[in-house]
Amino acid sequence: MARKTTAQVLRENKDSGKGSLVGYFPAGYPSVEASIEAAVAMCENGVDVLELGVPYSDPVMDGPVIQAATLTALEQGFKLKQIFDVVRGVTERVDTPVLVMTYWNPVLQYGVDRFAADLAAAGGAGLITPDLIPDEANLWLTASDAHNLDRVFLAAPTSTETRFETAAKLSRGFVYAVSTMGITGARAELDALAQKVVGGVRKADPAQLTCVGIGISTAEQVAEVNGYADGAIVGSAFVKAYAEGGIEALKAEVQALASNLAR
């Protein structure tokens, strides 16, 4: 099939000097169908890699904007298996690689290998696992290899050299560089820490890709991050735009945030 892998997309954009925008949206928010529409719109308006969030009862890495959205999805009755409907709904319509961002317990309860198989069958590219560190990830390493899926581990400003090495070695797709010590949500200024994390990953493995997330909310920040990393990850700003102005506002926000990237 023609669909490119996450790494291919990021690398092509990098090599041609374009930079990449990774966009997050919660599956099931405000409904399963509407989240598919929103995600497709993001892909059609400038998002290079899509990140679909699985609504979860205890999202400790998420700030208030994303918490509110995922809670809405759960209150609407979102069921875990619907994540595959959303992934399929998006991948049927656009070529963008679709990663799923999920806390670990839902995957564990579904069955790690079964989750991987169903995700691959739906056309999903892989998983971002915010509360699964490589040290605890044996089941996932095996399943992601078996089903040829991306696995995005996190690297933080406080990670040691050894941990940068592990994250770089075991991640596939890219390493998620946490730009700041904190949870998701827009920040006025990006920490210099982001550069440090990207540097840590680069030093550990110059061939590995790394995207910066947490706190990015402006076109300037997206461009700035792409100056030293392989992509900028934006979540809360998109969810907020959608919450306030629906799909048109979301499209406008995606276009605006992608506007400083050469196209």
Binding site: W104, I133, S159
Partner: peptide, 9 residues
């Protein structure tokens, strides 16, 4: 230790 990488240190 099922926590975000940010807490490992």
């Amino acid at each position: 230790r099922y926590v975000p990488e940010s807490l490992i240190a």
